[in-house]
Design a protein around this nucleic acid. Structure first.
Lengths: 249, 249
DNA sequence: TAATATTTTGCCGTTTTATGCATTTTTATG
DNA sequence: CATAAAAATGCATAAAACGGCAAAATATTA
């Protein structure tokens, strides 16, 4: 039996039983416990299992991510949110994607603003429930736990049926050549729909996302109306963006 | 049994019972109390539990933000949730309404349970994102801010298209003659759909809701399979309910 | 195909870890 | 403040992990 076969067997067994013992595996697979231990070490260093004394367990699925990200570079996000909030006008229909920058924005919308906001992010929706006058429509679907947003076909088809004045969109990365890109395929697809559905596309973009490329393309620059960053809009880094007709705030 | 398994078990039990005794655990897990004590020390130094003389308690994390209700009669709600959680079986499709009792239930679902949960409540969905294996489908629509749930036609039509094994439902009031009633028209309508869509209807009901009547009728008793309350199920108050064929837990 | 390099595996002595037990110290409580 | 329960401490033991090494299995190259 090949090493890889053996390791696949181990992965399968962990998935099935939520636990394996080195001693069991050694007998079951007819190899020494040393070999099993080395297998478990391999798999563990690939983050496929959690190795423990005596065997292994499935990887900890706990997601600390969103909460953590929430406080990461908060200052930059806030400065972006402050610029963004001025673009919201009474009576508008707005779509907001699920970024933490958008969450900051949701927090500072003045209480006299009257608008309708569509979102598929739980934290943003929850935040907006504290606003007295904004009407919130939550876009349902299967939940992506770490990001706390809904994803999938339901979301795509809901958004396709919308017509919005504005959309505020976080981003995985943006650059002149490739436009906006996302690390997550599902999210990239959803964002395409958001852009389709909106008259004006506003991208909220902390400085570390500028001139970054992620795996999946969302849209070329020419579909983006405005980019809001924490940098000075006159920074020379934005010259090529402006040449493509994108407004920088 | 591996050390980590044991510690996971302890964490689960604390989540469920809000307390554990070293002596119990020692018997339950078939190890000496010394070992349990060492486990509790481990978990405690990782800030996952609060170790106390004789056992351990959950660490009290999240700041109580919106919900005074959430902590009001928490004890009763928790005792209901504990009974309810036993009804959840692997692989089931479950609909949960938006009550605070359901939120308690969501908190204590053991981490090895594998089920699909539909809900239209933001806090419940958010809570469930911390569960490693449950699939969550959020039912979108217009948000009702004070209750933090979606309501309206979208919700009704989404639920109508479902087929669930179970639904867990909070209630505004219940009595023998009028069955289940709700103060809010939209919610009453949504609950009707939930009942339609579910094979088994389980009503979670704190004692103050028993023999109460609200404005809008949801369903007569005969559509309800089980009522879970914080009272003793043999309490004579339930005799007429039992005569109508409702199971009391 | 033979020769050689590389990887995988088993073995063995050493080190570390997990656990139970006995003894002492601390804590809760009437 | 007396007493029983729980916790801490130290020690013993068995199981598991580690590191080095050499044999065996595989892959690569001439």
């Amino acid at each position: 039996m090949l090493k890889e076969e053996r390791q696949n067997h181990i992965l399968d067994k962990i998935k099935l039983n939520r636990k394996v013992l080195s001693s069991d595996l050694s007998i079951e697979l007819n190899v020494s416990e040393d070999t099993i231990r080395r297998d478990l070490n391999d798999l563990s260093s690939k983050k496929l299992i959690k190795k423990v004394h005596g065997g292994a367990l499935p990887i900890d699925t706990k997601a600390p991510s969103y909460e953590e990200r929430k406080f990461y570079s908060l200052k930059e996000k806030n400065s972006i949110a402050k610029k963004a909030v001025n673009l919201i006008k009474d009576g508008q229909v707005i779509i907001m994607s699920g970024s933490t920058t958008n969450l900051q924005l949701a927090k500072i919308i003045p209480s006299d603003v009257n608008a309708t906001i569509y979102t598929y992010s739980l934290p943003i929706a929850l935040q907006l429930t504290e606003h007295p006058s904004i009407e919130i429509i939550f876009i349902g679907g299967k939940l992506n736990k770490p990001a706390q947003v809904t994803v999938g076909l339901d979301v795509v088809s809901s958004i396709s049926q919308l017509r919005a004045d504005l959309c505020f969109m976080g981003t995985g990365g943006i650059n002149v050549l490739n436009g906006m890109t996302e690390p997550n395929w599902e999210v990239s697809h959803i964002k395409k729909c958001m852009i389709e559905a909106s008259n004006k596309v506003i991208v909220l973009c902390t400085n570390n996302k500028i001139n970054e490329i992620k795996r999946y393309s969302v849209t070329p620059l020419n579909q983006i109306n405005t980019i809001i960053t924490d940098l000075d809009p006159n920074n020379q880094i934005f010259i090529p963006y402006k040449e493509k007709g994108v407004e920088i705030l």
